[in-house]
C-alpha cells in the first residue's frame, strides 16, 4: 500500500502508553505506521514518580473514578496497582504488535512522565501518543503531559484520540516552508492506494497561492496522486478547523513550526481537531 520513498526513512517508532483509551488508539496507529514503514516499535510505560511521591504524603487520598469513594493512598497498594497496570499494558502491546508481525520492544521506566517520554523520544523517528491520560477532559483538548511532551519533542509526533485511527483522505497544511515540504512527503507516505491528498494552502493573496501551488506541483512531479487543493486566506484557528472538517480529512499532517501560523495557534489547532494529527519537524 505504501509508496517507496527513499527520502522518508522511519526506523523507530515510540509509543507512550498508559491505560487510557486514548493511548490504546495511539498503540493501534503506531502499529500500523510500524508495519507500513517496516519500523521497529518501542513501547514505553512510565511509572509516574509524582504518584508515588503523593502516596508518601500522610494526607494522600484518592477518589474512586466511578464509586466516588475516598480511600487512603498507600505506597505499597499503589505499587501493586501500577505493577498490575504494567502487566496489562504489556500484554495488550505484545498482542497487538505480534498480530501485525511488527518487531517490538517494551520497556518500563520510573520518573516524571514527560521527561521519561522525551528522553526516550530522542532515539525515535516518530513519537506516537494519546491526547490525554484520561477521558473526562474536554474532547480534543490535549492533556498537560501531552502538551509538555509535544512542545519539546525532538522528532515527529502523532497524536490520537479515543476511537480514531489513521484515516483517509490525508490533509496537509502547506505554507511553503521547508517543513511544509516534509509534511507533503509524510502525507504522501500515509496515503493508501487510491487515497486522496487534500492540501490546504495558507495564502493571503492569489499570487502567493499560485506560487505555493507551483511548488506543490514541482514536488508532485511524476507521482500519481489524487490531489485536492483549498486555499485559506485568514489564518485563524476556527477557519482552519472548519476547512479541515468540511474536507472530511481522516488524518492531518502539520508542520511543527510555520512561518505564517504562530506556535500558539498550532497548539490551539491541536485542541480543536479530533482526527489524528501528525506533527512534522
Amino acid at each position: 500500500m505504501s509508496r517507496d520513498r527513499a527520502e522518508l526513512i522511519i526506523r523507530r517508532i515510540l509509543v507512550a502508553l498508559d491505560a487510557s483509551p486514548h493511548s490504546l488508539a495511539a498503540l493501534e496507529a503506531a502499529v500500523e505506521l510500524a508495519s507500513r514503514f517496516g519500523a521497529e516499535l518501542y513501547g514505553l510505560y512510565v511509572e509516574d514518580i509524582n504518584l508515588l511521591r503523593l502516596a508518601e504524603l500522610p494526607f494522600a487520598q484518592e477518589v474512586g473514578q466511578f464509586s466516588a469513594n475516598r480511600r487512603r493512598l498507600d505506597v505499597q497498594e499503589l505499587e501493586r496497582q501500577i505493577r498490575a497496570q504494567t502487566v496489562r499494558i504489556r500484554r495488550i502491546f505484545r498482542g497487538t504488535s505480534q498480530r501485525a508481525e511488527v518487531s517490538w520492544t517494551f520497556s518500563v521506566s520510573r520518573g516524571r512522565v514527560d521527561r521519561e517520554v522525551l528522553a526516550a523520544a530522542t532515539e525515535a523517528d516518530v513519537l506516537v501518543l494519546g491526547r490525554a491520560g484520561w477521558s473526562w477532559i474536554r474532547p480534543g483538548r490535549a492533556g498537560s503531559t501531552t502538551r509538555a511532551v509535544l512542545a519539546q519533542a525532538p522528532g515527529w509526533a502523532l497524536i490520537l484520540q479515543e476511537g480514531t485511527c489513521l484515516g483517509q483522505p490525508v490533509g496537509v497544511v502547506y505554507d511553503g516552508s521547508p517543513l511544509a515540504q516534509k509534511a507533503l512527503e509524510a502525507a504522501a507516505a500515509l496515503l493508501e492506494d487510491d487515497g486522496q491528498m487534500t492540501v490546504l494552502f495558507l495564502a493571503d493573496d492569489p499570487q502567493s497561492f499560485e506560487s505555493l501551488k507551483a511548488q506543490v506541483h514541482a514536488w508532485l512531479g511524476e507521482q500519481d496522486i489524487q490531489m485536492r487543493y483549498r486555499t485559506l486566506t485568514s489564518f485563524n484557528v476556527p477557519s482552519l478547523v472548519d476547512a479541515l472538517e468540511t474536507e472530511g480529512c481522516g488524518t492531518i499532517v502539520l508542520p511543527a513550526r510555520s512561518a505564517v501560523l504562530s506556535d500558539q495557534a498550532l497548539r490551539a489547532l491541536l485542541d480543536e481537531v479530533r482526527v489524528p494529527v501528525l506533527l512534522v519537524r
Binding site: 509524582n50 503523593l54 484518592e62 477518589v63 496497582q81
Partner: peptide
Amino acid sequence: LRTPAGLAFAP
C-alpha cells in the same frame, strides 16, 4: 493526578 484506580490531589 490520575491514579490507576481513581483521582487524587497533590501539592
